[in-house]
Amino acid sequence: MIGYAAGRSPLHRAHPYTPLAAASAVLLLAFAVSTPGAVGVVVLAAVALALLGDATGAIVRPMLVLVLPTWALLLVLHGILGGDPHLVLGPVTLSEPGVRRALVLGGRVTAIVIAFLTALATVSPPRLVEAMTARGVPFGRIFLLVSSLTLVPRMRARAVQILDAQQSRGLRIGGSAAARVRALVPLVLPLVLGALAEVEEQVLALDARGAASGARRTALDPPRDTLGERLVRMALIMAVLMAYAAKFMGRGA
């Protein structure tokens, strides 16, 4: 599932900025390299991150749901429609440059998806709030970021309640394709309408509790940030800078 999964891995215990920095580094590195081999290394780095966060169990399903269709589409588009030379693999003939292109694009998507699902699974939203509050980030920005991070689990909980309610009113879930499409409106509309009404009320409630008071919020329990973690984040930034430097110098040469 997409969202935080409690745990005790090094990433769970790290300062929230560290997993987020690692995922961002994977994203930037994935676009800094452009050969299948190098993209493969970035994918491996993302997998290593997931293992470090003990998150493989939590992310494997959403990862496959997001990534498999991408791979299928890319292989069809580039592998079949790409230019010469062609490779003959049994009954199928594939474009060699097309497959290379598909490997690069698919690898990038895979690495980014794994890295960000891992970050979502290991960064506890309340700890991120405390970390950002301690750094003096304005509340409005914290709220926007964290409520988008927690959007999926919140919508999911609401969707279950809507499903229950509409089935109890006789709505058949399943059946023919046409019936499934017809069932979407009574399921999706309350989700959207309810979420909108809720946002309005939540704005009032947050304002009532001083969210817009303009004072600098008190961080009650800011997560500890260690020198080691700062060094790790510096190293990630350096790695990204070096990768882009190599990319542009290579192109210039």
Binding site: R158, Q161, I162, D164, A165, Q166, Q167, S168, R169, G170, V185, P186, L189, P190, L193, G194, A197
Partner: peptide
């Protein structure tokens, strides 16, 4: 079951659309 059982939930906002 809805043919025989009419269920009114505690909170209305999960079904109106």
């Amino acid at each position: 079951l809805a043919r025989r059982v009419g269920y009114v939930f505690q909170h209305a906002d999960h079904q109106l659309f």
